[in-house]
Design a protein around this nucleic acid. Structure first.
Lengths: 155, 155
DNA sequence: CGATTGTTGATAATGATTACTAAAAATGTC
DNA sequence: GACATTTTTAGTAATCATTATCAACAATCG
């Protein structure tokens, strides 16, 4: 490839500093994760990567999601439905709709007071924090939305 | 059984209202989860229950953890290391030590303002929220604690 | 008691993730 | 570019956690 965009160059440098290479597979896997805010599972990433790299192996997808998460290039999240990945590495919170299961990003408040309070109470060193909200999203609150109990559409 | 304590009676009533029975297995599984604040995995619960009921089946443990969680008698939590259970159903936050992996309970602040703010910003209905803190706990900060990077003891 | 319903233990089945390995690709050196 | 070295890949087997199945058992109710 003759041209590379700036982001790819920066990423390449980041990886190289750790003895890692920016392969075609790795780049596309990252692009797929970054292209959505739907917090995809490994299986979903695999399906989408395969549209662009039909011969990619599922193991390659898993391996790279893990590697990229370890490098901090993307983040890993777990909830009872399984492990999900998030290309948005900026600090942010999440809202999980108990009716439809969708996970929405919520901008984090700039709130170092919260960390400081926990640190002073526990004596622990707080490096990071994230809040998970649970409730019903706009779509599910409206008539026709899904009930959180029955999962059926409301009228 | 001739005597039952009040808690067991209340639980029995709760379950009966849903057509569920308080069996020996179910009661002991719950007791085991409640007896620790270590947020045990299903495998750990199984090992401990077996000390009191040597013939219990792993499937019974899974089945009941799921059932009890569905009844709201205990809660289910997931992180990248897997699914864990929490007998403390009071609203509280968590602190995960990135060095040793231990999960500590952190008393929740009485903070409806946080929920209200998210609700007004998103238009969603917020039913619940929980904050996850990450950092190094007291033991791991001290000399001899584990480095979050290498996992080795520090000197 | 007898009928009904819920539960258990044992184990098979499933699904997600990881381990393994020979071949291929990327990188560095001349 | 050719070569040696290192990393990565595809394909697949292995592992691990969880769930499904089902016949036997236990609790509950009339």
């Amino acid at each position: 490839m003759i041209t590379k965009n700036v982001a790819a160059l920066a990423l390449d440098a980041t990886l190289h500093a750790r003895g890692l290479r920016l392969t075609r597979q790795r780049r596309i896997i990252l692009e797929v994760v970054r292209a959505t805010d739907a917090h995809p599972t490994a299986a979903l990433v695999y399906r989408r990567v395969r549209r662009r790299l039909p011969r990619v192996s599922l193991a390659t997808v898993y391996r790279n999601l893990r590697t990229l998460a370890a490098e901090g290039v993307l983040t890993e999240r777990a909830d009872p439905s399984g492990v999900r990945f998030d290309g948005n590495t900026a600090s942010h919170d999440h809202f999980t709709c108990v009716a439809c299961g969708r996970i929405y990003d919520v901008p984090a408040r700039a709130d170092r007071a919260v960390r400081a309070r926990v640190a002073s109470r526990t004596g622990f060193e707080v490096l990071n924090h994230r809040t998970e909200f649970y409730g019903r999203c706009g779509a599910c609150r409206r008539p026709g939305g899904r009930s959180p109990v029955t999962g059926q559409r409301r009228k």
